[in-house]
Design a protein around this nucleic acid. Structure first.
Length: 425
RNA sequence: GGAGAGGUGGCCGAGUCGGUCGAAGGCGCUCGCCUGCUAAGCGAGUGAACGGGGUCAACCCGUUCCGAGGGUUCGAAUCCCUCCCUCUCCGCCA
């Protein structure tokens, strides 16, 4: 959510900045709604002040017959206040909805461009392996090894679900443990295990609602949503709180399953684990002082990259352009892992600085010092990493000519010492 | 699911038959005084949002906030309704 006070004075600049996302006129109705709100508020508050003053006098008057006229007059004033308040409520609801549906201002250093073709590759790490045979996609490897079963998953739930067995299931668990240990033991994050279902206020705090409800799995009774990422519950941990400055920066890492409808992606990535309704992810979330958020994004990105480096998986880093950055983010770096089976880089992590956009929605503030005015923190998050896609990358990058798959060295302790995945009997 | 209790300021905790309550008191915290140090003691202060004014700031004024939303009333933390949450007991259950 953008700052109304800022918008009041910088509407054109804000609109121009938003236009770099690819569509403009987000704020067309702002000026009018905002001035109407202040007008109504001024009148209503003036009448309330009078009502309070007169009511106090009435209260002190023993003989109410002396103030009968005032009582009648205040009855009218109250009626007028009620009318004004009702109108005000409507205007504020419109204004809130407007502000809740305007995306974040892109960071001034983000590349400007309309779509992903304008994204800037900023780094490559590792060298894609040369195979002496035709590299297979992970779904073929996984099914041949008996560790992935998409057909039966379809029977159980439907398309875009997976079922894994044996070393496949264990590899998924190993990756979760490995990532959580790495981030909590070496990168200074506190592990947290949040609820996997949340309420509307929580979904609104991080920006999923009100605009993207159709992407979410929803439970009717009670009115809950399945989380699409741990970012949602973890960022909302401090909703409506004022954090002591000494606690900042706060860094959390969390494993959760993620649930996404993937509406509008029909026909894309229909095979394999790449695009699922349910997938596992280890997330990194930070709450920091505003002046630190750019540096904290760099270190968060580095923390996510470390996972791939330890797993010895080649990847590249892409600085997303203004047209490709998500709704709530100001700046985003994607990490894309090399997938030999598809001979392409695929997103495996997305690391973003949201600045005060989520903090303002969720009212997450901090106080620099005793007595100082509360300020909004900056929030950041990134995948560290998407576990299902990491498993995909391991299967495809570590595949052998005989169809077996080597287990990355750092994962072997998490796999009971297993060095190679061979067909399940 | 059944029965009961309760939700007040950073925390604990008062709020009488509705009236001058942003809210007694205590703790905590901040500043000052005092004290070899510490502790104790003394004094003062101590929430947020929105709007207006301003030497545009550390200032002033107004409004709102006593779980949330509605209602009654000139006036509600105090009365009524709905919802949410917490706790206790029973049942059930990982």
């Amino acid at each position: 959510m953008l700052d109304s006070k800022y918008l009041r004075d910088n509407l054109d600049a804000a609109e121009a900045r938003l236009a770099t996302r690819g569509q403009g006129a987000y704020l067309a109705a702002f000026r009018d709604l905002d001035s109407r709100r202040r007008e109504l508020l001024g009148e209503a508050e003036g009448l309330k002040a009078e009502k309070n003053r007169v009511s106090a006098v009435i209260g002190q008057t023993k003989d109410k017959s002396q103030v009968a006229g005032e009582i009648v007059r205040m009855k009218e004033v109250s009626g007028r206040i009620k009318t004004l308040d009702d109108t005000l409520k409507e205007v504020e609801a419109e204004l809130d909805l407007l502000l809740l549906t305007v995306p974040n201002l892109p960071h001034e250093e983000a590349p400007v461009g309309a779509d992903e073709s304008a994204n800037r590759e900023v780094k490559r790490w590792g060298t894609p392996a040369e195979f002496a045979f035709a590299a297979k996609p992970h779904w073929e490897l996984g099914e041949a090894l008996g560790i992935l079963d998409f057909e039966r998953a379809g029977k159980l739930a439907g398309a875009r679900f997976a079922l894994s067995f044996g070393a496949g299931a264990r590899l998924e668990r190993a990756l979760i443990g490995f990532m959580l240990d790495l981030h909590s033991e070496r990168h200074g994050y506190t592990e947290v295990l949040p609820p996997f279902m949340v309420n509307r206020a929580t979904m609104t705090g991080t920006g999923q609602l009100p605009k993207f409800e159709s992407d979410l799995f929803h439970l009717d009774d009670p009115d809950y949503f399945l989380i699409p990422t741990a970012e949602v519950p973890v960022t909302n941990i401090y909703r409506d709180e004022i954090i002591a400055a000494a606690q900042l920066p706060i860094r959390f890492t969390a494993y959760t399953p993620c649930f996404r409808k993937e509406a509008g992606s029909y026909g894309k990535d229909t095979r394999g684990l790449i695009r699922q309704h349910q997938f596992n992810k280890v997330e990194l979330v930070k709450f920091v002082r505003p002046e630190e958020s750019d540096l904290e994004l760099a270190s968060l990105l580095a923390d996510a990259e470390t996972v791939l480096q330890q797993l010895e998986l080649p990847y590249r880093v892409v600085d997303l352009c203004t047209g490709d950055i998500g709704f709530s983010a100001a700046r985003t770096f994607d990490i894309e892992v090399w997938l030999p089976g598809q001979a392409t880089y695929r997103e495996i992590s997305s690391c973003s600085n949201f600045r005060d956009f989520q903090a303002r929605r969720a009212s997450i503030r901090f106080r620099r010092e005793e007595g100082a005015k509360p300020e909004f923190v900056h929030t950041l998050n990134g995948s560290g990493l998407a576990v299902g896609r990491t498993l995909v990358a391991i299967l495809e990058n570590y595949q052998q000519a005989d169809g077996s798959v080597l287990v990355p060295t750092v994962l072997r302790p998490y796999m009971g010492g297993l060095e190679r995945i061979t067909p399940r009997k």
